[in-house]
Design a protein around this nucleic acid. Structure first.
Lengths: 133, 133
DNA sequence: TATGCATTTCATAATAATTTGAAATAGATG
DNA sequence: CATCTATTTCAAATTATTATGAAATGCATA
């Protein structure tokens, strides 16, 4: 693990770079080319976008919700069929459906006595990810 | 919201379909073509795969971790630079890095006094998702 | 309007994730 | 070997998420 020489630079301690620690040379040289820490920060998505992304991932961070995603990728389904496939209580299912809905992965439509859920375009994008990983 | 007639079928109460509730006709007809509830279930990924997917999404369900993903999509970085960009304590950062590592989104490599993190191929796939949504 | 069914809502209990700060580890240097 | 720096580990406190079951809602039908 200790196979590289370790030239140390304190350039990053200068206030223009806002860094209070030393940095290994391999990292430092690349970082300089994009404007140091400040330059790196400008390449990040906005705070709002990052919140949105993490929230969306949270909506898929539970096995029940991932299962719902794949069930609905087959066809739109009413709550009772989803419930039957997964084998959980109605209130529990409702809780999970709501999280997915709030995050724009699914939408619901009342049809008579039933409520039918289907994937949104965003939901479909995530359902297709199975192939990519 | 109440715009469709509601023909009710109890076919799904027959044990071969394992359903104990009524189902709206629009859903029922499509469902029959894939073999009812049992057929639908066979189209799901395995339980292990679903666990894996939800775990991966969990690893991206926090703003700190999403930020790390995007920082590392620019270039490999040592912990101290990541820390400087995000502005959190070392132990907290370590906690989040570990979750991402356990889920195969990043790998670390010791270089002298520092530990350098970089995205795995899997991590890169998720970093690219920004463009898709 | 009374009833039945599908679904949601709500309060609460149970569980899990995150934060915190102190202590430990690991490598480099004097 | 003593010390410094970077990073991780650990236990405890805090906070967030999920599960549960009872009650409420909404639609349909008699």
């Amino acid at each position: 693990m200790t196979d590289t020489p370790l030239p140390i630079h304190r350039d990053f301690e200068r206030e223009e770079f806002e860094v209070r620690c030393e940095i290994p040379e391999t990292i430092r040289s690349d970082l300089m080319q994009i404007g140091g820490i400040p330059g790196l920060k400008t390449l990040l998505p906005s705070a709002g976008r990052i919140e949105e992304l993490s929230s969306t991932h949270h909506a898929l961070s539970d096995p029940v919700r991932v299962t719902i995603l794949y069930l609905l990728s087959v066809q739109p389904l009413c709550v009772c069929v989803i419930r039957e496939c997964i084998g959980i209580s109605g209130s529990k299912l409702s809780y999970h459906l709501n999280i997915m809905k709030e995050n724009g992965l699914i939408v619901s439509e009342q049809q008579g006595n039933w409520i039918i859920y289907r994937l949104t375009d965003k939901g479909k994008v995530f359902a297709e990810e199975l192939a990519r990983m």
